[in-house]
Computed example of a mutant assay.
Amino acid sequence: MDRPTPEMLALFDTPEWLRVVGVFDLETTGVDVAADRIVTAHVGVLDASGAVISARDWLADPGVDIPDGATAVHGITTAHARAHGRPAPEVVAEVVGSLRGLLDAGIPIVAYNAPYDFSLLKNEAVRHGIDPIVDPAPVIDPLVVDKAYDRWRRGKRTLSVVAAHYAIRLDGAHEASADAVAAGRVAQALAERFAPWLPATAHELHTRQIAWARAQAAGLTDYFIQIGRLDPDDRLDGSWPIR
């Protein structure tokens, strides 16, 4: 995709629906959305400048041991979670409630690699007898949007790398609040850079991301098969924003 010139960008404002965004991130016991548990969570709201206008953080006792590998990522040990974390059912219920409040208000929720966080939260809700969020909308996933609008850029697409690419500061990577806020600001940077091509509404962008994510998973599947990382009969799940 050709980059818009500064003159072109001057003709386009940031979409109205991106001037207030929710942000959401989890840190967990692992990467299995069906089996792993929430350790920390963040739900917040950013204004048009990327400033935090509301925020809430949670520390849960997940009810299981936190593997050393997970602790190495987010810094929370089993002992710390047990001593200072709240019961997982309470945390899950409050996170679900906070996200529902944003969605009911029509505020888009930014989540980087959204299927991971929303799927794990859904499974945690089911585990604890809480009515799950099964079809969150509108969601903005900067990972999917960045791949769609800048498909051929080389390099990794981790949050830290993509944040650096868009000149977004990320202090404390893999801490739920830092990651959530950085993802929200990346979404706003994407909106500024690619304003001429953005859809008119957050719901239209949500719909486009469903197709983009499916296509991206198919392309990655083909690549992994070519390099021998996947068997020819295996396919990556391209469901979005929840699996």
Rank of each mutant, 00 (worst) to 15 (best):
R19F: 04
L18P: 00
A48F: 03
T77H: 11
D32G: 04
V39G: 06
V39M: 10
L26P: 05
D61H: 06
D65A: 15
V33L: 01
G44S: 11
E27A: 06
T28G: 10
L26F: 13
D68F: 09
D61F: 03
D47H: 13
S54D: 15
A60V: 08
T77E: 13
G50F: 05
D57M: 03
D25C: 05
G22F: 10
A55N: 14
T28H: 07
A35G: 00
L18M: 15
V33A: 04
A60F: 03
T77Q: 09
S54H: 14
T71M: 13
H42F: 15
V31S: 10
V31Y: 00
D47K: 08
I38D: 03
E27T: 03
G63K: 01
T29M: 08
T77Y: 10
G30R: 01
A72G: 13
D57T: 13
E27P: 11
V45A: 11
D65L: 02
P67V: 02
A48Y: 08
H42E: 07
R56H: 15
P62M: 07
V21H: 01
A72L: 12
V39H: 02
S49W: 06
P62S: 11
A51K: 09
D57H: 11
T77I: 05
A34I: 02
L46S: 12
G75Y: 09
A60C: 10
D32H: 06
A72T: 03
V52T: 15
A48C: 06
V39W: 01
A51R: 15
D68C: 00
V43E: 12
A70M: 03
V23D: 12
G30M: 08
A60I: 03
A51M: 13
I38P: 10
S54P: 07
L46M: 09
G50Q: 10
V21R: 01
V45H: 09
V73Q: 03
V23N: 06
D65Q: 07
T71W: 08
V64P: 12
T28A: 06
P67I: 03
H74S: 05
A34W: 05
A60E: 08
D65E: 15
A72Q: 13
D61W: 11
R19H: 11
E16R: 13
G63N: 10
D57S: 15
R56K: 14
T29A: 07
G69F: 02
D36A: 01
G44F: 09
D65T: 04
I38N: 05
A51W: 04
A60L: 05
D25A: 10
G30A: 05
D25I: 01
S49M: 08
V31K: 00
V39R: 01
V39C: 12
G63T: 01
S54K: 10
G44L: 14
T71R: 12
L26Y: 09
